[in-house]
């Protein structure tokens, strides 16, 4: 095919342009969130003593520490969907600040709680449930995010996939935090982080595979 012929087809097809990636995200994200919320309410549900729990700093910190990075990672993912992918520094700094908040929580806990208690709080009651539930709750969100990013043109597909994974994992974790009986920052920093890292890695691998263009 001569390049002139190709140009003719492209001009002919000029009326068909996809909506911006952000628009697509706004359409698919509510579906993903609804699926995750439904999954959460039908299988786990909020913990029975949630009314009392919201009075404690430790409990309240959990969904905040998870929802905050979810919002940042979603914004980061949209930036990375463009081939020019610039202006990611502030969002990355924001994510680092959330990580610092997590570390600060751990340090505060180490100061407040006697060392004989550390081990019990670290292991918690439901570590395995945490490791399983967060990826499961993240799955619909990861699927929706990757479907959105496929319409983009990421310069670094693996990194874009990792951002999608981080978003899905932290948003899933924000839901799980409402069910989870373990409130110690020691537990959150360990088990939540492990689950989030795992889902982020899955996102990165899937991204390298699915988001090439």
């Amino acid at each position: 095919m001569k390049t002139d012929d190709l140009l003719r087809v492209l001009v002919a097809d000029g009326g068909t342009i996809e909506p911006p990636v952000a628009t697509r995200l706004w359409r698919l994200l509510p579906l993903g969130l609804a699926a995750t919320a439904l999954l959460f309410l039908t299988t786990l549900g909020p913990r029975p003593d949630i009314a009392a729990a919201v009075q404690t700093v430790r409990f309240v910190l959990k969904p905040i520490e998870m929802a905050l990075p979810a919002v940042l990672a979603a914004a980061l993912m949209l930036r990375l969907a463009r081939p020019t992918d610039q202006r990611t520094a502030r969002l990355s700094a924001g994510l680092a600040a959330v990580a610092a908040l997590l570390v600060a929580g751990v340090l505060a806990e180490l100061v407040v709680v006697p060392s004989s208690e550390w081990g019990r709080r670290l292991v918690g009651e439901r570590a395995v449930a945490c490791l399983v539930s967060i990826p499961v709750l993240a799955a619909p969100l990861l699927a929706a995010s990757l479907a959105v990013l496929r319409r983009g043109a990421p310069r670094r597909p693996g990194l874009a996939g990792a951002a999608a994974g981080l978003f899905a994992a932290t948003a899933g974790a924000a839901f799980y935090a409402l069910h989870c009986p373990d409130d110690s920052p020691l537990f959150v920093a360990t088990w939540y982080s492990l689950a989030i890292v795992a889902v982020t890695a899955i996102g990165a691998l899937a991204g390298r595979w699915l988001l090439r263009w």
Binding site: M1, T3, L10, I17, P19, P20, R82, G152
Partner: peptide, 15 residues
């Protein structure tokens, strides 16, 4: 030609 095709199909990613 590959680049032109990509420009066409991905032009919605231009801000």
């Amino acid at each position: 030609q590959e680049i032109l095709l990509a420009v066409h199909l991905k032009r919605h990613t231009w801000d």
